[in-house]
């Protein structure tokens, strides 16, 4: 059956045994290949790729591996406090983002605000999203110093952009009928939003916010490594003082805590969709 359907299109090639090619086509392909190879070679050197080092430092690798295979949980209370701090950073980073993201989301929605409002608001949101949390973390560490508050601010700013976009997409997908029903009673614009828009988007909003919270816990861990507080900061300290068994214990705790959170959060989100 397939032979019948493809016959027509392949007939032209089959007479030559190959698709037709012009000289120019061959030149373009060769040039493309050459460029690709050049890029790879340049990137190899630029990234200082050196597989030999893995062999050369095999001894190091072996100790590291051995140490990591014997995680040391003696200071588990300290690590637990660290992971709780990471959660706290994620909670406030996400919550602030939701609080500030909601008005932005509404102002960015074409079915709520006029184009001259949605356009600048969307560009502003794009800006917040375009810059990674880590970059914001470094900026805020410079501004407010090392510690969890810098982490909260970094997550807050980046997540506000993300949340506003997700929330706004939900708002733009609502059924306009109920909103008109409310408008018809002589309600104000704000009342239209409170009674007509929010009830329609709330389940999605909750689900998005929880999802962002999950990923913010992971981000908060990484932000900690650059100095933004929480378990990441603890991890960085143990690594720098070569306490690999302790570092391994922290990784185990992070993996378990994040997995647990994901499972719980997914359960909750499933209820709202």
């Amino acid at each position: 059956m397939t032979t019948v359907t493809t016959n027509g299109s392949t007939a032209g090639m089959n007479s030559h045994g190959m698709p037709e090619r012009s000289i120019i086509g061959i030149l373009v392909r060769t040039a493309g290949l050459a460029v690709a190879v050049a890029v790879l070679v340049w990137a190899w050197h630029s990234a200082e790729m050196n597989p030999g080092q893995l062999v050369q430092d095999a001894g190091n690798m072996a100790t590291l591996g051995k140490d990591f295979l014997r995680p040391d949980f003696t200071e588990w209370e300290f690590y637990a406090a660290g992971i709780l701090e990471t959660f706290a950073i994620a909670i406030w980073g996400t919550l602030l983002a939701v609080i500030f993201g909601i008005p932005l989301a509404l102002l960015a929605s074409a079915n709520i605000a006029p184009a001259w409002v949605t356009f600048p608001v969307r560009r502003f949101m794009d800006m917040l999203r375009a810059i990674n949390e880590l970059v914001f973390a470094l900026i805020f560490i410079a501004a407010v110093g090392l510690g969890p508050f810098a982490g909260v601010l970094a997550l807050f700013i980046h997540t506000t952009g993300v949340i506003a976009k997700l929330f706004s997409e939900a708002v733009e997908a609502i059924d306009p009928g109920p909103v008109e029903g409310i408008r018809g009673t002589g309600a104000t614009k704000l009342q239209e939003i409170v009674y007509g828009v929010i009830p329609q988007v709330l389940p999605l909003w909750i689900s998005f916010a929880l999802y962002r919270f999950e990923s913010n816990v992971r981000s908060a861990t990484v932000i900690g490594i650059v100095g933004g507080g929480g378990i990441g900061m603890t991890f960085n300290e143990t690594m720098r003082s070569f306490q690999y068994p302790q570092a391994a214990a922290i990784l185990v705790i992070v993996v378990v805590a994040v997995s647990l959170l994901d499972i719980i959060s997914q359960r909750i989100r499933a209820k709202f969709i």
Binding site: G177, P178, E180, G181, I182, R183, G184, T185, G186, A187, T188, Y195, G196, P199, Q200, L202, P203
Partner: peptide
Amino acid sequence: ARRIRRRIGLIFQKFNLVNRL
């Protein structure tokens, strides 16, 4: 307009209630 709208009760083919409320 908003004040005058209060005098009009609007009914739609699709009811246009807010489902989740």
